[in-house]
């Protein structure tokens, strides 16, 4: 139990997925203009990440390791993730209209989000067991949500700030992310 808590805290705060591991930067820069979409994006990502972690662990353990095919890791993970996201999208569309309206348009964007493939690769690297992998996927999603929501909050305020013309948009976002990363460094050593 204690190690699950450690995995959670580590993925959310200490080794925050976005600010420390640099995964999922594209949506982090692209979808952090407004708070509302940022929250939806975070939730959709968390959902897919948790699912990916479980599926990737099973594939790695029973197909890749089982048949000694680790060299097909990248190819099989990306294909499975791409089809998984498609399936989830179709499933949600059928089952829950409100959920689809909230998350739907973000799902296709998630396929090419390196954070998702990153989850699969990291959980193999860290040799997590099944439960730990699911917790890891979920916590990494929460970490991503935390970062993107904080960022969106700051960027809404930035609208009112007098940013030099050439630094509007991506450059100032990067610099703010740098400051956030600096703040998150304060957590290192917590675990």
């Amino acid at each position: 139990m204690a190690n699950l808590v450690i995995i959670f805290l580590s993925a959310v705060i200490v080794n925050n997925y976005v600010l420390v591991n640099f995964l999922g930067i594209c949506p982090f820069v692209g979808v952090s203009k407004k708070l509302g979409p940022a929250i939806s994006m975070g939730m959709a990502t968390t959902f897919v990440m948790t699912l990916t972690a479980a599926v990737a662990w099973l594939i790695n353990r029973y197909i890749l390791e089982g048949l000694n095919l680790q060299f097909l890791q990248t190819v099989s993970f990306i294909l499975v993730i791409a089809s998984l996201v498609q399936l989830v999208e179709m499933f949600i569309k059928k089952v829950s209209k409100p959920l689809y309206d909230a998350l739907g348009i973000f799902l296709p964007l998630i396929t090419t989000n390196c954070a998702i493939l990153g989850i699969a690769l990291f959980l193999v690297l860290k040799e997590y067991n099944f439960i730990e992998s699911i917790i890891f996927g979920f916590s990494a999603g929460v970490g991503f949500t935390l970062a993107i929501v904080i960022m969106a909050g700051i960027r809404e305020e930035l609208e009112l700030a007098d940013v030099p013309e050439y630094f509007k948009g991506a450059p100032i976002t990067m610099i703010v992310a740098g400051c956030l990363a600096l703040a998150f460094m304060g957590f290192s050593g917590l675990i």
């Binding site: 600010l19 640099f22 050439y166 630094f167 991506a170 976002t173 610099i175 740098g178 990363a181």
Partner: peptide, 18 residues
Amino acid sequence: LQPGAFLTLGLMIGISNW
């Protein structure tokens, strides 16, 4: 460290805009 990456890239994009 990580913050340096964000700061440097932010400045580089800004300068290239300019």
